[in-house]
Design a protein around this nucleic acid. Structure first.
Lengths: 206, 206, 206, 206
DNA sequence: GATGAATGAGAGTTCATTCAT
DNA sequence: TATGAATGAACTCTCATTCAT
């Protein structure tokens, strides 16, 4: 068997099950079954179920945080930057969907997860700060006292959108509530506008 | 013992423990201990631990949703309405803190919780819709195609703020990260402005 | 079911099995089976298998150590005292046979057991010291520099005798080796003489 | 790799670990690690862990029993012989310390170990018998009905002494209890006197 | 209604042993 | 001969649930 393949199969199975059922909900027996290894094999690679959980999250979160650096926006209209940023974030959340879901679900029960989450927020906070700095040069903006909370709402609604779509896929549940009216086509532009101009919308004349 | 008192003590204990440790993390033994009843007594009132969980959440969420009706905003400036709405929501989230926390934590593992959460969102969506209707009459706003996601980000960042503050209280952990810079004094006004005008801030002249 | 009966049944079963198979050799399933309770019931009364082990040994060893006080020898010939002491010790070891066996078997693997064993030795050392004090007044004896090791040899050979007899009973093995030639009738007197006069035997004239 | 070297390394590692942690306490993984071989290699040389245990003990015990023959005492005072015998035995127990410790620890759980132990006792019994025969010619002694138990006490206290000293070395525990007062200088002579004359000591005039 | 001892299925984990390489 | 990844039976322990009192 190719090197590392078994370990990867276990991680893959565990990540999937943890993201769907939570840490307590997914049993080692299930994980072994899905990975097609014996239950004991898990402990050849991981010292405990908890350690396996962290290995499911930690390296990928690292990778995700690095992904931010690589995508430096190039547009020189600020609105263009904002749209770009939203699109990138949506792609990122989609790619690292399971990892983020696990992190958020286990947040209340694990101090280690809180650490990871803080670094997750911090990185995005830094990125938002870079955007704002650019915006300040380009246009007149108001950097509010509580702007990190704005960023949080922004980040969380993007995440919620991705997670919602995944849940529809996975569960097959009918989640098409009348008040949830998603227009995928204009999503990034709408969210960027919301981020920039709020519910009042873009002023007609500037 | 006064009628209903035992049942209420169990619910109170369970709600507290579920909100702190999650459904799986809180044991029936612990709940019984905190409620000062025998473990078996729980099953006099609830058919299962899961049923107890739902009873911890369902009635209070109902109550919370009703709280929205009672607080009809009276201001006639739209910005005043928005500030009022944010303040009310912060109060509401604080009051129903444990209930919401339980609901959100168990969301990924329980279809029933998803139903509750949907009604939670729906109610707030309706309220936001009422505000928007008012706004449309008062001022010219752009009702975006994806505005429900705006509302979600708004709702979630308010919740996050309340939950974050509670966690600081409860755990005593030092959560004062440099990038999290909360100015409580202007919180409601800042968030209302963000909701209204986005990161670009209030136009200087209208 | 009478109070305490279940706990006692578990302790009884555990003591028996631990003394025959050792701590690792006896499983909780076996103990539960012998005690005619469910495996989980063990953990109603004891926090762990290790705690159960200590409860099998600790209280009875306490009791045994107290038994020494009650049997104050009354004879005024020193040889009479020695015979009395040996007889008492044989009875004691027989009565607390399982307890001592467990303690000795687990000695190498448990620091707590070492503590118990030390108190076991100390108590007997004190008793031997009382005998010697009496002997010093009655007859001329030599209190050797290393007499505690003599006492140890004495104590261990008595224990070995009792344990050997029990093993014959329990296992049904044929342990009648030609060089092991036990004369039960004169046992106590012979051992007392050995203790007093060694292999050279009692001097013909005193 | 030189023939037999691997096998010997495994035996050496196993003997050391069995003597310190017991048969159940030492794992095959640990043994392989200490011997610097793969876990599977153990099974190239030994059919099972149990078989490895016996190979750790059996040949060395054989060797030890042969050591008795070689050291035929040459003194012609009986007390001199006794001192010689004690010294030899202390040296022997020190040399074969791990082997004896393993044998005694596993005694209660293994019928094969009982066989080894019986041959261990038998050999020493024979030697004591030779001494006694010599003594009978040299001096007037009383060969008691239960003298084998005397010999047992003698043998066990010597063993206990050696083991106690080793444990102090190995564990670094403070085992200096006030009632244990060892005078190493006169040890052999004291024990020989005790063996010969008992607690009453050597008669003043013979 | 209230009890709490008893249950037992099922959890995570260990480790002697096997076998393809 | 030597390897070490893989195995799976067996272990200790947990905890929601039951039921005689």
């Amino acid at each position: 068997m190719a090197e590392g393949q078994t370990r990867d199969r276990i991680i893959g199975a565990a990540r999937h099950l943890f993201s769907q059922k939570g840490f307590n909900g997914a049993t080692t027996a299930e994980i072994a079954g899905k990975a097609e290894v014996a239950e004991g094999t898990i402990y050849t690679y991981f010292s405990s179920k908890k350690a396996l959980l962290m290995e499911c999250v930690s390296p990928l979160l690292e990778e995700m945080l690095n992904d931010f650096e690589e995508h430096i926006p190039e547009s020189d209209s600020f609105r263009g930057l904002a749209v770009f940023s939203v699109e990138m974030r949506l792609r990122l959340y989609e790619k690292h969907h399971e990892t983020i879901r696990i992190m958020l679900n286990e947040l209340p029960y694990s101090a280690e997860m809180v650490d990871l989450f803080v670094s997750f927020l911090q990185k995005q906070s830094q990125e938002v700060a870079r955007y704002l700095a650019k915006a300040e040069k380009m246009e007149q903006i108001v950097r509010s006292r509580n702007y990190w909370l704005f960023g949080l709402g922004h980040v969380m609604s993007l995440w919620f959108y991705v997670n919602f779509m995944k849940m529809k896929e996975e569960t097959g549940l009918n989640l098409d509530y009348p008040f949830i009216n998603i227009s995928e086509e204009h999503l990034a532009a709408d969210l960027a506008d919301y981020f920039l101009y709020g519910i009042m919308g873009r002023p007609k004349k500037e």
